[in-house]
C-alpha cells in the first residue's frame, strides 16, 4: 500500500465517463473527524489503487482522495456524512477498503 513519492498525477483526474463508478455514503465516527493520520492512511491506500480514481465529497466540497492536502480541506468532522466515489480499475475493492478507513471508530487520541 505504500507508494513511492512523486509522479502519480496522471490517472488522478475526474472519474472517467461515470460508468462503473461506485458511490458510498459513510458516516465519520472517529472522535477527531477525518484528521491527519486517518486522511493520510486513506490517501496512501487510495494511491495503492493506481488504476482507480477516488473522490470524497463533504457537502458540495470535493477532494481528490489521493491527496492528503485535499482531504484535510474537507473539514470532515465527527458525525459528518461524506460520499466516497471510486471509479476505474478495482473500484469495488477500493471502495470497500477506503470506506472501512473512513468508518473506523479510531481510538487514537492524538492528531499529528
Amino acid at each position: 500500500m505504500t507508494q513511492a513519492g512523486g509522479g502519480n498525477g496522471g490517472p488522478n483526474g475526474p472519474p472517467p465517463g461515470g460508468g462503473g463508478a461506485v458511490r458510498r455514503a459513510v458516516r465519520i465516527t472517529n472522535p477527531y473527524g477525518l484528521h491527519h493520520r486517518v486522511a493520510d492512511r486513506f490517501a496512501r491506500t487510495a494511491k495503492g489503487y493506481a488504476g482507480a480514481a477516488v473522490a470524497v465529497f463533504n457537502g458540495d466540497q470535493r477532494a481528490d482522495g489521493k491527496s492528503l492536502w485535499d482531504l484535510l480541506g474537507l473539514v470532515a468532522l465527527p458525525g459528518a456524512e461524506v460520499v466516497l466515489e471510486v471509479s476505474g480499475a478495482d473500484a469495488p475493492a477500493a471502495a470497500d477498503a477506503l470506506a472501512a478507513i473512513l468508518a473506523a471508530p479510531g481510538g487514537e487520541d492524538y492528531t499529528i
Binding site: G9, R37, A39, D40, R44, D64, S67, L68, Y110, I112
Partner: peptide, 13 residues
C-alpha cells in the same frame, strides 16, 4: 504521527 507530515510534503496537490 510523522507519516502524515511526510505525506503532506510529498503531496502533489
Amino acid at each position: 504521527i510523522f507519516g502524515a507530515q511526510e505525506s503532506l510534503f510529498e503531496d502533489p496537490a
